[in-house]
Design a binder for these strands. Structure first.
Lengths: 168, 168
DNA sequence: CGAATATAGTTCGATATCGTACTATTGTAG
DNA sequence: CTACAATAGTACGATATCGAACTATATTCG
């Protein structure tokens, strides 16, 4: 007995009497856990390659406005990004401070705002894309890229399902 | 001209002269963006169903120790979770404060610590699983669960690739 | 052996995110 | 028309995470 500390065996070495539903939940957990780790890895790589110290989630906002068109409300962007509106208020304030977006009152609804990409924001986006090409080139093979292309539509469907069936 | 604000067209309505590499990068972005949103959705669902206000990432630590065995170093857990060691220091302090883990010095290396699941931690894990079964049941159909089972090994391979090829 | 380097954790300050509570405006029902 | 409910956004405090700098121990190498 060399070890002073008790180290418990992994659970799969014990006999299992779990119900089917628990087994399914474990696979769901494993899936979401993997998704979380990939997200973590991608964020770290992105954070290191984005110019001007821009946070990956803020870059996602710029990219969203760039691809899908600007002039959207903060709440609409928040829904697309799956973050709360308080988070969006903060993120937009940061991006506005950097001069990448402008936030204007919605002329058709005095409660709301509309978010626009500035020229500087578009320049930033182009520069960011260029710099991240190299960063991702270091960690991605053609095989992995094609794997991601294959998986993307499945993830999109799953996301849409989760989004439309979420609680509240 | 009813609109006072200029709203730019989505980018895909403009002619594209982008290089192949940029197109690939856009798909990679789309993939990681989808992963990030799914992660966000899953975290929100989990956060609402975990007992005792435990953060999803902290539950992931407990689940990791439960499944793969405890008596691991904080750094090793941090590597598995893809978070920094400073984050792990904080997370373990929280879990220790709740009585779910104990942190003991490593008898074979005075620099290190070893993390053990307490009985309370195991009880918490079982209770958490039970409570989240219902929560996920509300937002997941059998079709989505089987989709996740199908995608899991692909994501795992991708994660392993990213992990082994990451910068530094 | 002894100095330089590497590894394991912690401390500290910054920031992204969340939930609660608030204001302001819009929509709706009596 | 007025009161109530819904919607858009902000203010504030709490917390999870990060990076830089630090301490302590271990390893390596001359």
């Amino acid at each position: 007995m060399s070890k002073q500390q008790q180290v418990n065996k992994p659970k799969n070495e014990q006999e299992s009497k779990a119900a089917v539903s628990e087994n399914s939940v474990m696979e769901v957990f494993a899936f979401f856990n993997e998704v979380g780790i990939i997200n973590q890895l991608a964020s770290t790589i992105l954070a290191g390659s984005l110019p001007d110290g821009v946070h990956p989630s803020h870059f996602a906002i710029i990219n969203h406005l760039y691809r899908l068109g600007d002039g959207r409300s903060p709440l609409r962007i928040a829904a697309a990004m799956q973050v709360t509106k308080t988070t969006m208020t903060h993120s937009l304030k940061v991006l506005e401070g950097k001069g990448y977006i402008s936030i204007k009152p919605n002329p058709e609804d005095a409660r709301g705002k509309l978010v626009f990409l500035s020229a500087g924001g578009r320049q930033f986006r182009d520069k960011a894309i260029a710099q991240t090409v190299a960063a991702f080139g270091h960690v991605l093979s053609d095989e992995q890229v094609s794997r991601m292309k294959k998986l993307l539509p499945e993830l999109t469907e799953l996301r849409q399902f989760l989004d439309s069936n979420r609680l509240q």
